Simulated assay, not measured.
Amino acid sequence: MTAAYLGRRLLTIVYTLLVVSLLVFGMTQLLPADAAVTLLGASATPQSLAQVRAQLGLDQPAWLQYWHWLSGIAAGDFGRSMRTGQDVAAMMFPALGRSLLLALLALVLMLAVAIPLGIVAALHRGRAMDLVVAMVSYIGISVPEFVTATVVALLFADFLGWLPATGYVPVTESIGGWLAHMVLPTLTVSMILVAHVSRMVRSEMVDVLASDYVRAAHLKGLSPRRVVLHHALRNALLPTITIVALDVGYLLGGIIVVEEIFAIPGIGRALIVAVQNRDLPAIQAGVLIIAATYALANFLADLAYAWLDRRIQYA
């Protein structure tokens, strides 16, 4: 992997984020509500509304508003919330951190469950274990997040009383309390991811186990365990990296329902509040941060490809 390739990929990320910034800014301009009316209320006088619009720069042309916003972001200034007056970066990045912690827990649990399930299903292709894994995967894909979250909360919180149903405790206050409140949302999200990844691992393992180099490894007298873990699995995981990278985007932007149900103050929930209050700087910053994280995850997936398979060369 050359420095020129890395430079081009980084430039692609920058270009992508520029396009995303233009799109999100344009969409926020099309929102039907007036930010000044949202702040002051419908009974505000025309003079006060005009004053607020001037303070917020809403009376300027759209292209000039976009330029001021983009240049501010380039300097690390994401603006101030129209709802609270707080610095948007101080709102969104801690929320992103909480979502990333949830995503990390969900990914770790998913990989610990999905990869063994996929391997077992591939080794028992067409038999009962393969059918069981397939059934679990189809159920996980088919059931919506809010249904899974509701069932998990009713079972472990209400019926068994083992864990709290909702709420959030910062990890800096109590690691035990934080873990207790994160178990149910992590379990909910992981069940969905396991369904995707286990089927991918199973499919790729079936193809790899039928390849010539795996048969050659068996003929050399290597143990079945070594053949599966050291020869087959390494190549079977390559397409899985793509799925995991795509799941990062889902984890940050698609678990809004999970964060809302379990009252986790993540970036998805922060975006809901921002949209409800037409908090334009918070909406724009939140979407841009999610897009940047998603682009970075795909970039890291490319690096992982090259690390796992030395035959892959990025010119």
Rank of each mutant, 00 (worst) to 15 (best):
residue 275 V to I: 15
residue 97 G to E: 09
residue 315 A to T: 11
residue 55 Q to H: 04
residue 82 M to A: 06
residue 119 I to W: 01
residue 161 G to V: 12
residue 255 I to K: 02
residue 76 G to E: 08
residue 208 V to R: 00
residue 315 A to K: 09
residue 221 G to R: 10
residue 94 P to W: 08
residue 141 I to P: 00
residue 216 A to I: 12
residue 62 A to Y: 02
residue 227 V to K: 00
residue 167 G to I: 03
residue 205 M to N: 09
residue 58 L to M: 07
residue 76 G to H: 00
residue 69 W to P: 06
residue 196 H to P: 00
residue 130 D to P: 08
residue 217 A to L: 11
residue 225 R to H: 11
residue 269 R to S: 15
residue 78 F to V: 08
residue 125 R to M: 06
residue 59 D to V: 02
residue 119 I to P: 03
residue 207 D to N: 14
residue 93 F to D: 03
residue 300 L to K: 00
residue 235 N to R: 10
residue 83 R to N: 11
residue 82 M to Q: 07
residue 284 Q to M: 12
residue 277 N to G: 01
residue 259 E to M: 12
residue 194 V to L: 12
residue 260 E to R: 07
residue 202 R to N: 02
residue 16 T to M: 13
residue 306 A to L: 01
residue 314 Y to E: 11
residue 280 L to D: 10
residue 96 L to V: 10
residue 284 Q to A: 00
residue 74 A to P: 09
residue 33 A to L: 04
residue 252 L to T: 05
residue 266 G to V: 05
residue 95 A to L: 02
residue 146 F to W: 14
residue 306 A to N: 04
residue 111 L to G: 03
residue 95 A to P: 00
residue 251 L to C: 02
residue 65 Q to R: 15
residue 39 L to T: 12
residue 94 P to E: 09
residue 17 L to S: 03
residue 14 V to N: 06
residue 38 T to N: 13
residue 25 F to L: 08
residue 235 N to M: 08
residue 247 D to S: 11
residue 86 Q to N: 13
residue 191 M to P: 01
residue 43 S to C: 00
residue 147 V to H: 04
residue 235 N to Q: 10
residue 36 A to S: 13
residue 286 G to H: 01
residue 71 S to R: 15
residue 26 G to N: 11
residue 92 M to A: 13
residue 240 T to S: 12
residue 23 L to K: 08
residue 253 G to Q: 07
residue 163 L to S: 02
residue 14 V to A: 15
residue 47 Q to C: 09
residue 205 M to G: 07
residue 283 I to F: 02
residue 24 V to L: 05
residue 232 A to L: 05
residue 136 V to E: 09
residue 241 I to F: 07
residue 179 L to K: 11
residue 310 R to M: 10
residue 191 M to C: 12
residue 136 V to W: 10
residue 79 G to Y: 00
residue 38 T to Y: 03
residue 47 Q to R: 13
residue 54 A to H: 15
residue 29 Q to H: 13
residue 97 G to V: 02
residue 77 D to M: 01
residue 243 I to G: 03
residue 98 R to E: 04
residue 284 Q to I: 05
residue 212 D to G: 01
residue 295 A to S: 14
residue 305 Y to C: 09
residue 250 Y to A: 06
residue 252 L to A: 07
residue 315 A to R: 14
residue 170 P to S: 08
residue 220 K to G: 02
residue 174 S to P: 05
residue 303 L to V: 15
residue 179 L to M: 14
residue 89 A to C: 05
residue 5 Y to C: 09
residue 133 V to R: 00
residue 101 L to E: 15
residue 56 L to P: 04
residue 64 L to D: 01
residue 54 A to P: 08
residue 168 Y to C: 13
residue 165 A to V: 12
residue 146 F to D: 14
residue 64 L to R: 05
residue 255 I to R: 10
residue 86 Q to A: 13
residue 168 Y to G: 07
residue 53 R to G: 08
residue 268 G to K: 04
residue 168 Y to Q: 12
residue 41 G to N: 06
residue 13 I to L: 14
residue 190 S to L: 04
residue 289 I to L: 15
residue 164 P to T: 03
residue 86 Q to K: 10
residue 147 V to K: 00
residue 159 F to Q: 10
residue 88 V to W: 04
residue 54 A to D: 14
residue 192 I to C: 03
residue 128 A to F: 14
residue 190 S to W: 12
residue 30 L to A: 15
residue 186 T to F: 07
residue 53 R to S: 04
residue 184 L to R: 10
residue 228 V to L: 02
